[in-house]
Structures are given as C-alpha cells and as structure tokens.
C-alpha cells in the first residue's frame, strides 16, 4: 500500500527528527513516499532521501510553497492523493494547519496525533489532554493521519531513495506570508532534546528565566515552559509544553516552579524520568515525578547547576 508522508520543512531545511519519527510510523502502513514542498526544496529532498524506509522522495518546488501556507500546499497534496491510500505527516503545527484541510477536500476525516498504528485502518490517539486513549477504525477510502512524534523512534539514516521533481499546481492567492518572528537558538530543539528543563509561573520573571537557561546549558538541554510562564511573558510561545503546546518525551524532564495542571502534564508525562522542584509539597506535579524536591527554586536550581558535571 502506498503512503504519502508530508515532510516538515523549515526555511528549506528538513526537520530531520520530526520527519524521521513520522517515517517510522508511516512505514508500518506501507511503502513511504516523502513529499518535500518548498521554494527551494532540493536540500530537504536530499536529506529526506537518506532516511531508511523511504522508497521515493517527491520534490515540489515553487515560491508559493516557501512558507508552507495551507491553501497551496493542501491543493498540491490533493493533486497527488490519487496514488496513495494514506496521507500522513508528523503532528507539527505546520501539518496540523494543512492536513485537516486536505482531509476535507478529499471528504474524509482526519486522524490527529496518532500514537500507535494498530493496523492499516486502525489507530490509537489521546483525547481529553491524554487522560484517555481512543482506538479508532476509519471507514474512509483514504486515511489522513498526523503522528505524534514523541511516541515514535526516529527511523535511521543511511538510505538513498530516488528524488523526483514533480509538477506544481500554483496558488489561488488566498493568503500571503508577511514575516516570521523566530528566535535563533543554539540549544537543542525542544521536541528532539534528550533533556528538557522547564520553568513555570514560579520562576517569576523573564530575567529569572536565566536560572532555567543556566541549568539547561549545563545539561545541553532544551527549554520548556508552562502556559502561565508564556502568558506572563517570561518565555516565548514556542516553549510551551502541554495539551495545546508541544508534546515532549525526553529521557529527563526537570519541571521548576510548575504546579502540574493536567494540561501541562499532557505534554510531558511520557518523559522517562521526571524531576519536580517546587516549594509546595502539595503540588500535583509531585504525583508524576520520579524525583521530587520540595524547595525554593531560586536556591535549588542554581545549586543543582553548580553540582552537575
């Protein structure tokens, strides 16, 4: 069975981790063809071709795909849909923007955030912020699925799939890109980092987040935040972990000054080891923590930073 997988591409580069994780999910369904769409996607296509388990890479190159706007990219995917039984993608913000549109154009339901492939028509997905898991069986002719990347191992690299340049379908001009506000960072990306250090409202200010950053840098970790920290302006929106932010499952997650609301837990409770540092011993975060430390984070976090490594 043929599976189309829409690659995650940022500024012409393949998001290798997210795409490779989605490949290992999609490979359980059939032969995977990766679609790279971009203003210049030759580099991303070459990177995608190295992922083991990829049979073929399609490269759709046009200015209109440069910023992954939903309308033209969805039209492109629909134009290719005839040859595929499954249309899949990693469950990134980009794909969640595009794939439901594709599904509606094909008159099928979308299956968002699948965490397991049961068989070619049956998938498991979390609902209610991960407080329940649902197994759903699709009766649609085509299955449109996004895969939650934190639950799949990345496929290896070392492959050499052929790359084919394909015709594009143009734009209807419904939307136009204006600008991206993206903070450059040398830190590991949140969703692929082995260790994540997160700060919540307890951190108290943007300046105080330096304490969190110092620990993260010591551990070569990614940085996360609770919604309260983001809403209060202590941290940028792309650091938010949770039901409506990013879902992470690192080897080690250190929550500092985070109470542990279910919406936050939804984004990190599958981490291998969870550490919680909170001055309130009643904080719900301690119910999921492997190691809890009841302490003032302004003392404990710098001390931890000093004593590690």
């Amino acid at each position: 069975m043929a599976v189309l997988l829409v690659a995650e591409i940022n500024d012409g580069d393949l998001a290798m981790d997210a795409t490779a994780k989605a490949v290992s999910a999609a490979a359980q369904l059939g032969d995977v063809t990766v679609l790279c769409a971009g203003a210049d996607c030759s580099k991303a296509a070459a990177q995608a071709a190295t992922i083991s388990g990829v049979e073929k890479v399609l490269c759709a190159q046009d200015e209109v795909y440069g910023h992954q706007l939903a309308e033209p990219v969805a039209d492109l995917i629909v134009s290719l849909a005839g040859g595929f039984e499954h249309i899949t993608a990693p469950a990134t913000a980009g794909a969640k923007n595009i794939l439901p549109r594709v599904a509606a154009l094909l008159d099928v339901m979308v299956i968002s955030d699948a965490i397991a492939v049961v068989d070619s028509v049956t998938f498991e997905r979390p609902i209610y912020a991960g407080n329940a898991l649902q197994t759903v069986k699709s009766s649609d002719g085509k299955k449109v699925v996004t895969f939650r990347t934190s639950t799949f191992e990345a496929a290896e690299t070392g492959g050499a799939a052929p790359v084919e340049t394909i015709a594009t379908v143009g734009s209807n001009g419904l939307s136009t890109w204006i600008e991206d506000t993206v903070a450059a960072s040398d830190r590991p990306e949140l969703t692929s980092a082995k260790i994540v250090v997160s700060g919540g409202r307890g951190v108290g200010s943007e300046e105080n987040f330096e304490i969190i950053k110092a620990l993260a840098d010591k551990l070569n970790a990614g940085i996360g935040a609770s919604r309260a920290a983001v809403d209060s302006g202590y941290a940028p929106n792309d650091w938010q972990v949770g039901q409506t932010g990013k879902v992470v499952a690192p080897d080690l997650y250190i929550a500092c000054g985070i109470s542990g609301a279910i919406q936050h837990l939804a984004g990190m409770k599958d981490s291998k080891i969870i550490v919680a540092i909170n001055k309130d011993e009643e904080a719900p975060i301690f119910q999921v923590a492997d190691f809890g430390l009841v302490a003032d984070l302004f003392e404990a976090v710098p001390e931890l930073t000093a004593k590690l490594g």
Partner: peptide, 23 residues
C-alpha cells in the same frame, strides 16, 4: 461518523516516585 471508536482506555499510570531531601 467516519471513525468507529473501538475502545477507550485509561492511559498507563506512572508509578509513584520519591521525594528527595536535598540537591
């Protein structure tokens, strides 16, 4: 519906951890 719900289950629960006394 296009998706038939075959089952709804509780997610695996994390086993309780420990509280440490110091950094």
């Amino acid at each position: 519906p296009r998706l038939e719900i075959l089952a709804t289950s509780e997610p695996p629960v994390r086993s309780a951890g420990i509280v440490v006394g110091s950094v």
